[in-house]
């Protein structure tokens, strides 16, 4: 395994060297160079942990931290809180009861300030109020989303007849070539029903999985494992396409070998 990884790394470095010799590399810009070298540094982990990988890792983490601080400041804090708050203060109307247009924003502002009390041990407990508000509101929103998008929709989608009338009519009437497909089509609904019910039983925690319940749970875990296998293969294919994308960047944008 390690030998294969080393071979990949040597091939990549060899291609880089060949591209450099051929004068192709010089055509790439500075940004491409930095990106390509950092990509190779990350790929060097395929061989083993090394100082080059360590350097790339630290650069990555450092840049990500700085980038996210800037992103949160410009895209979240300024447009959603600070600017509307300042605009509201400018338009404050002094009447018997002062009218402040964006008064509601003072609540997230105060909750945000409370989060910083963590730096002062004596009042650190105040930060829990912000956390409680955040977890509570997020949970409330998540429940509605899960109910609407997952639970109710899944219940409806899985209410299928025990057999498909169309599949039953078609079965045997078509040629022998489609007999297998007809059979599979006929088995679709029973498989959905058995798989769904037994998988639900597997996630039943109030009884030991013994007897009939145990058998059903065992069938359920088989269904789960088969679906995991299919999902694994599907996702690996998409990861391979990511690797191809990265190799294409190295060979095309950087080395110019592939056009």
């Amino acid at each position: 395994m390690r030998g294969a990884r080393l071979a990949i790394l040597i091939i990549l470095l060899g291609l880089a060297g060949a591209g450099f010799q051929a004068g192709l590399v010089s055509k790439a810009g500075l940004g491409t160079w930095v990106a390509a070298l950092l990509t190779l540094a990350i790929f060097s982990f395929l061989y083993r942990d090394n100082p080059v990988y360590k350097l790339a890792e630290h650069i990555f983490i450092g840049i990500a931290a700085g980038y996210f601080v800037a992103l949160e400041y410009w895209n979240v804090f300024l447009p959603n809180l600070w600017k509307p708050l300042v605009a509201g203060l400018e338009h404050i109307e002094y009447s018997p009861l002062p009218h402040f247009p964006n008064m509601i924003l003072l609540i997230p502002f105060a909750l945000g300030i409370l989060l910083f009390t963590r730096f002062f041990p004596r009042v650190a407990w105040l930060s829990r109020w912000s956390m409680a508000a955040m977890i509570g509101s997020y949970s409330g929103l998540a429940i509605i989303g899960a109910l609407q998008g997952d639970l109710v929709a899944q219940i409806r989608a899985n209410m299928v007849p025990l057999y498909s009338r169309e599949a039953l009519t078609a079965f045997g009437n078509d040629g022998t070539e489609s007999l297998l497909f007809g059979l599979l089509e006929l088995l679709r609904n029973p498989l959905i029903i058995v798989g769904l019910l037994t998988t639900l039983i597997y996630f039943f925690f109030s009884r030991e999985h013994k007897g009939g319940l145990g058998v059903a749970a065992k069938i359920g875990i088989w269904f789960l494992m088969i679906s995991f296998g299919a999902s694994f293969g599907y996702t690996v294919m998409s990861r391979v396409s990511l690797l191809i994308g990265r190799l294409h960047f190295l060979l095309s944008d950087w080395l110019g070998i592939v056009r």
Binding site: I155, R156, N158, M159, V160, P161, L196, L197
Partner: peptide
Amino acid sequence: ILVAGFIAETLGWHTFADWFAA
């Protein structure tokens, strides 16, 4: 509910399943 839904759909009664439409 699912078992009731399977039976209702097999018998061609769609009102029960449609009630669960999101």
